[in-house]
């Protein structure tokens, strides 16, 4: 084995090993969060977010290990699609969860949305009453 080449290889191996372990740790954190957090909204944080970093680290180590430049664009695309879709899914679940009251109000220190949602609901009820008839 050529010592110069193996020197570079050792660095790459070490970096990708660290990335893989930390990336796996992030996924573990997501699992722990899912089990330990009290309500849907806080679980959404654990379920969606550590993936952003975890996936980034795992993809980076895949790229480092394969060592060919043409895998990087695919990995980048995979990560960017993750960046684009994660907030949307988190928002949709969070929004539905809030409106169907899947949350522990007593754990919220401030809730500046409640009044707004309540007002919208009252308005909708009033509209329904006005137009009520055989459906």
């Amino acid at each position: 084995m050529n010592p110069e080449v193996s020197g570079v290889d050792t660095v790459i191996d070490t970096v990708s090993a660290v990335f893989m372990v930390v990336g796996a740790l992030m996924s573990l954190g997501a699992a722990v969060g899912l089990l330990r957090f009290p309500d849907l909204m806080s679980r959404m944080h654990a379920a969606t977010k550590p993936q952003v970093l975890g996936l980034f680290l795992l993809l980076a180590s895949v790229g480092l290990q394969l060592g060919t430049w043409w895998v990087w664009p695919v990995l980048l695309v995979a990560w960017i699609f993750q960046l684009l879709t994660v907030p949307v899914s988190a928002h949709m679940v969070g929004r539905a969860g809030y409106r169907t009251k899947h949350l522990h109000k007593e754990l919220l220190t401030t809730d500046e949305l409640e009044a707004v949602v309540q007002k919208a609901a009252d308005k909708r009820d009033a509209d329904d009453d006005e137009t009520s008839g055989p459906a």
Binding site: M41, V86, P87, Y98
Partner: peptide
């Protein structure tokens, strides 16, 4: 939303 700890609800 991507920064852990905050999530857009509405």
């Amino acid at each position: 939303s991507l920064i852990p700890g905050s999530l857009v609800v509405e």
